[in-house]
């Protein structure tokens, strides 16, 4: 039982990153209908920003703030410079995001080379609670991810801005008639989505080594999580992210570990065959 719980705990840590990415994907999709595939590369950039900041300042806290802030700016730049021109044709936006993957990876290789980098972990060691091992860093990462996700949820559900986001997601035309600045609101979701990816990048850095290709593994899972949670459904994405992480960890623990990806995506396929719009509510459209 302890072993099972240990695997589940390991999985929650993985799932926290998937949830951060998936919420970003789902927010952008909910308002723009653009499937932003380059979000994995935003995680990679976030990890490098955190790493560079840690090298300069020696502080992981500053690294976390810098990763979120710099990625928010990158999110705005990509929306203003690229995605706003594709809002009428979301498919074009999707293809553009595929191209962006190559460009951002190339930039990563050019600046940092393809060699793996790592930072000294902010918190080493673990707590032993009746045989269940809580790695301190993992606890911090889960806590940070949870706080960020809760904050995002609270903003969406409890503020005027959140109300505007939900109005645009439900019916952009009606929202515009009511005086909601639709284009501006859409831009902010790109900013928030990128900032969440930046936080995800920080978590990835504090867990292990990073390279310009680190986003690849997280992108597919993040996207699968967004699908399972229901595209456009923030709560669904968060829950599905943790579920995916736990499933992956259990697969590594009890299945043939080399088949880990196959198990995980096998589950994704089964879920989508059963519920094509995902497990989350109203995922055929945008429900924030």
């Amino acid at each position: 039982m302890i072993l099972f719980l240990q695997h589940a705990l390991n999985g929650i840590s993985l799932g926290a990153v998937y949830a951060l990415i998936a919420v970003g994907i789902t927010l952008v999709y909910g308002l723009s209908r653009i499937i932003h595939f380059a979000v994995g590369e935003l995680v990679m950039l976030g990890a490098y920003v955190a790493w560079e900041t840690w090298r300069l300042t020696g502080s992981h806290t500053v690294g976390l703030a810098a990763a979120a802030a710099v990625l928010a700016v990158i999110g705005m730049i990509t929306e203003r410079g690229i995605f706003r021109f594709t809002l009428r044709e979301p498919l074009t936006g999707f293809i553009v995001s595929l191209g962006l993957i190559m460009i951002l990876q190339g930039i990563g290789i050019e600046i940092w080379s393809a060699d793996p980098r790592r930072a000294d972990p902010p918190l080493a060691g673990s707590w032993d609670v009746s045989g269940l091992i809580f790695r301190k860093q993992v606890a911090i990462n889960i806590g940070v991810s949870l706080l960020v996700l809760l904050a995002a949820y609270a903003v969406l559900m409890k503020t005027r801005y959140g109300k505007a986001v939900r109005a645009v997601a439900d019916d952009p035309s009606a929202a515009a008639l009511m005086g909601v600045p639709v284009r501006f609101i859409i831009m902010t979701t790109f900013i928030v989505g990128a900032a969440l990816a930046g936080v995800g990048g920080w978590v990835v850095l504090t867990n292990g080594s990073i390279s310009p290709f680190v986003g690849e593994a997280y992108l597919l899972r993040g996207f699968a999580v967004a699908l399972i949670g229901g595209l456009g459904n923030v709560q669904g994405a968060a829950v599905a992210g943790v579920g995916m992480g736990v499933a992956e960890s259990l697969a590594a623990g009890y299945g043939s570990p080399g088949w880990n990806d196959a198990y995980v995506f096998g589950i994704v396929i089964l879920i989508l065959l059963w519920r094509p719009t995902g497990l989350g509510r109203g995922s055929s459209g945008a429900h924030l």
Partner: peptide
């Protein structure tokens, strides 16, 4: 033999399995 997907950087699950 505990084989993991290439590009793994978080070894927690595989190490836990070894412990198990």
């Amino acid at each position: 033999f505990i084989l993991h997907p290439p590009k793994t950087t978080d070894y927690s699950s595989f190490v836990t399995r070894a412990g198990g």
